[in-house]
């Protein structure tokens, strides 16, 4: 699980082009949206594509992302329980 969280942090930084943010600076429980990393709605869509592409998880309702993308910890728990690849 720890490995998955580190992997997610690296992917979030790279795929969402978070300049000047390092893996070490993202805590497992940091909010990804709002006051946390400040991600926006396009970032949320990008994360949905990432779930599908890298972990074989297809969200049927984009609104599900609101809960799943709360933090790296929540994302990792969800991926661990639902991944198909």
């Amino acid at each position: 699980m720890s490995e998955l969280k580190e992997e997610l942090k690296a992917k979030i930084i790279e795929q969402l082009n978070l300049e000047d943010v390092s893996v070490e600076e993202i805590a497992d429980d940091d909010a990804l949206f709002g006051d946390g990393l400040g991600l926006d709605s396009i970032d949320a869509l990008e994360l949905i594509v990432m779930l599908d592409k890298d972990y074989g998880i297809r969200l049927s309702d984009p609104k599900e992302g609101r809960k799943i993308f709360e933090s790296v910890q929540v994302m990792a728990d969800y991926i661990d329980a639902n991944r198909t690849k």
Partner: peptide, 9 residues
């Protein structure tokens, strides 16, 4: 087939 929303916009 994985179009990127961030590219598409």
């Amino acid at each position: 087939y994985f179009p990127s929303p961030a590219v598409f916009v």
